[in-house]
Write a protein that binds this DNA or RNA. Sequence first.
DNA 1: TACACTACGTTATAATATAACAAGTCAAGA
DNA 2: TCTTGACTTGTTATATTATAACGTAGTGTA
Lengths: 176, 176
Amino acid sequence: MTAHSHTHDPACPGCATPDVAFGAHDHGHCSADVMARADILLQANGARLTPVRRRVLEILLEDHRALGAYDVLQRLAAEGFGNQPPVAYRALDFLVEQGLAHRVDRLNAFTACMHPGEAHAPAFLICRVCHTVAEAAAMPVRAALDKAARAVGFVIERSNVEALGLCPQCQTGATC
Amino acid sequence: MTAHSHTHDPACPGCATPDVAFGAHDHGHCSADVMARADILLQANGARLTPVRRRVLEILLEDHRALGAYDVLQRLAAEGFGNQPPVAYRALDFLVEQGLAHRVDRLNAFTACMHPGEAHAPAFLICRVCHTVAEAAAMPVRAALDKAARAVGFVIERSNVEALGLCPQCQTGATC
DNA sequence: TACACTACGTTATAATATAACAAGTCAAGA
DNA sequence: TCTTGACTTGTTATATTATAACGTAGTGTA
């Protein structure tokens, strides 16, 4: 992982656009930036980024994909952590609670949050070919959803938007 | 089930508004209307609404809730159909394919589509207290999502929008 | 140190979902 | 009418995803 010292640089594609997943970018930025923010965020929350939790976040950050709990577990086990399901689920649930990861229901899988700490309603663009998961700018989506909900008196507490389709690369027939 | 003869009457709350789930309404309308449409739709598609499939759709239509595959299976078994998982999953998958039901990923459950045949992107409002599931007007939501996707060159084929929160009844503290 | 609290590792099991095959149904054409 | 082929159902078996419950160990604080 190529670490960088900045925390949030608008000149870096990985930081400037929330959904850079499909474009070429220095992925080291994404990872390092998020890890740095995670430390700050958790400290503010009085929560601890223990070795297992940190490692799980790193694993999720390796690329813009969603990993199943058992995939994560396998990685953990290979590195000397416990190898029973709760080990993975607990760390993943923790990260989700803290806003550092999201659960992608459609895939029964988890993905690192690409802009933790910022208020945002997650919306995922899932490529059905290469399985890349991008977290898209969802504020307008959320606004439209809120409006529809308000019309029937429903109060939204949490929303999850997931779209399945083809990423730019896979549309051209490339294998990604 | 109180059957009615009309197929789609704008004067009927269950027909006029797509998300009547939370309001008082003659639910017989919903069921009868959808069943009638299902027959037409399937005939047009050259697909068959066999006894199991019909029964599953009826079960889903009993109220505005999402049922797990095993809940459906239990009902089927009690009525003399097969009692192994594939029986339920096959019927449910068929209904989803035909656009007569939707899968609610968040709940690992299925719910009847309230306006089959009409072009629509499903958006669900799920009450976390009474578990009522309403299918909301999602065209604006889908439009916003499409726009966000287009911005990064992603082509959406299928989208799933699920919001968790409180329905009007449950906001007041009533048990629903 | 003693205490409360949190996190971790383990065993066991629950809940959800699918693969693969055999047997029955139905409609279209020989 | 008979046959064929596609489709549907039922069954066995198993895969995948997820949680309950309990004991132990680490962490910070009085």
